[in-house]
Structures are given as structure tokens and as C-alpha cells.
């Protein structure tokens, strides 16, 4: 994690550190595990994917002369007989942030080699993610029930449904993949694959290490991060 100590190399702080790290031999990101560096770069690339989706959405929504449906009405949910705007979305946000918190703690306990705590927290994260996917499925089915389709909808511009299903679908796919991996990794933590020097993986000679939990955590937080932007641009605009 932070503050690696490296033989024969002085780690300077701040921008001077940046210059000397970059100018050094062997590694540029000092003390950063290969897999973690790889996940970061992948997430950077994935950021560009989601940015392109959202930019397309902005261009599509901004240039339509047809009225855009009001999200605060479309996504309202009846609670105790009164329509509450964005209720489901608020709950989904709540669930996703909760799972992000448990993930952050799982990483912390992983580094402390607290197998039990780490395992339970990864499992809790997985269950949070699963809940989110379930709620999204409910939201989709509700909208479909009301007649919203990717190619048309009763509330206004047809692009509303197109962008909504595409972008939340793509995000939901990310969440689902994350959930699958969370379950796998919860198993791996409980089974002790990261203890005692680590177990060799499949078709590779790399040994398991708790850093894998941090890598998984990066992915999961990223999914949460994307939701922050989707929440702002889709539901609040």
C-alpha cells in the first residue's frame, strides 16, 4: 500500500518524488504490485468507455427538439400511496455506497491478515452488489411495464429509453461481473489462498496475496464511482 521502502532508492515526497520515481530504473510506480498497476490502467481505459457513453448521452439529449421525459416523475415510486421521486434510485445508491464501504474495510482487514473479517466483508459486499442488481432488474421491469422501450417511450424523446437501457445496462453488467468475482474471492479468502505465502493460481506461477483483494476493491469502487456520475446525469439532470 503506501510508503514502500526500497533499498538504494530515496522515496521523495510530492512532485519531486514524482520526478525521481519517473526518472528511476526498474519501476515507475514504486511499490505498486503489477496486478494493481494493471487494474488502475484498465480502469482508466474503462473510464474512457463510460465517458464516451455519457458524452454521447449528453449530445443526444441536448440536441433533441422533442421534449425529454422528466426523470423525477418517470423514476418515482409509490410509497404509502404517495409518489416519492427517485425513491428506488436513492435506495440503490444507498446499497451501492454501503457495499463500497464494506469493500474498503475488507481491503484494510486483508492487509492486516485478518482472514475472517476480510472474508465476511467481501461476502457482505457481494450481497450488497447482488441486491443492487436485483433492484435494477426491478426498475427495468417497471419501466418496461410502463411502456418504455429502447426504441420508444410514452413520455417523450425516444432516445431516453435508448440511452437509459444502454448505459445502466452496461453499468449493471459491470456490477454483475463484480458480484461474480466477489463471491469467488470471498471463497478464496475463506479457503486461505492468501495465507502462508499464498497458493499458486491457475495456469500461472504467481502466488496469491491479499493485494488481490485490493485490486478487486479498486474495481468495485470504480463501479460505485460510475454510479455517482450516472446518478447525477441520468436522474438529477
Amino acid at each position: 500500500m503506501s510508503d514502500p521502502k526500497i533499498d538504494g532508492f530515496e522515496l521523495k515526497p510530492g512532485f519531486r518524488g514524482m520526478a525521481s520515481d519517473t526518472g528511476s530504473d526498474q519501476t515507475m510506480f514504486k511499490g505498486v504490485h503489477w496486478g494493481k498497476a494493471m487494474m488502475w490502467i484498465f480502469l482508466l481505459s474503462d473510464t474512457f468507455v463510460f465517458s464516451c457513453f455519457l458524452i454521447a448521452y449528453m449530445k443526444g439529449r441536448g440536441s433533441t427538439p422533442v421534449e425529454w421525459p422528466n426523470p423525477s416523475e418517470v423514476f418515482a415510486l409509490e410509497a404509502f400511496g404517495v409518489p416519492v421521486p427517485l425513491l428506488l434510485i436513492a435506495l440503490m445508491t444507498f446499497v451501492l455506497i454501503t457495499s463500497s464501504g464494506t469493500m474498503a474495510l475488507a481491503v484494510k482487514y486483508g492487509y492486516e491478515k485478518n482472514r475472517k473479517m476480510c472474508g465476511w466483508l467481501v461476502l457482505a459486499t457481494a450481497i450488497g452488489g447482488l441486491t443492487f442488481v436485483g433492484m435494477q432488474a426491478y426498475e427495468w421491469s417497471k419501466l418496461i411495464h410502463e411502456g418504455v422501450r429502447p426504441w420508444e417511450n410514452p413520455f417523450g424523446a425516444a432516445q431516453f429509453g435508448s440511452f437509459f437501457f444502454m448505459i445502466t445496462g452496461f453499468h449493471g453488467t459491470h456490477v454483475s461481473i463484480g458480484v461474480i468475482f466477489l463471491f469467488i474471492y470471498a471463497y478464496k479468502v475463506f479457503a486461505g489462498h492468501y495465507e502462508n505465502g499464498g497458493k499458486r493460481g491457475w495456469f500461472t506461477t504467481m502466488k496469491g496475496d491479499y493485494v488481490e483483494i485490493e485490486i478487486l476493491g479498486l474495481y468495485w469502487h470504480f463501479v460505485d464511482l460510475v454510479w455517482v456520475f450516472i446518478f447525477a446525469f441520468f436522474y438529477l439532470w
Partner: peptide
Amino acid sequence: LAFPALLVSAIMMTLDKVIGTSF
């Protein structure tokens, strides 16, 4: 950093083609 834009446009065009969206 550039291939994401291609991927996104390919996905959107596939949707236009297959399920009839109008991106």
C-alpha cells in the same frame, strides 16, 4: 484511451441495427 470510443460507437451502432434504437 482511444479504443473505448470505437467500442462505444460499435455498441451503439449494433443497437441501432439490431433492436432499432436511433442513436
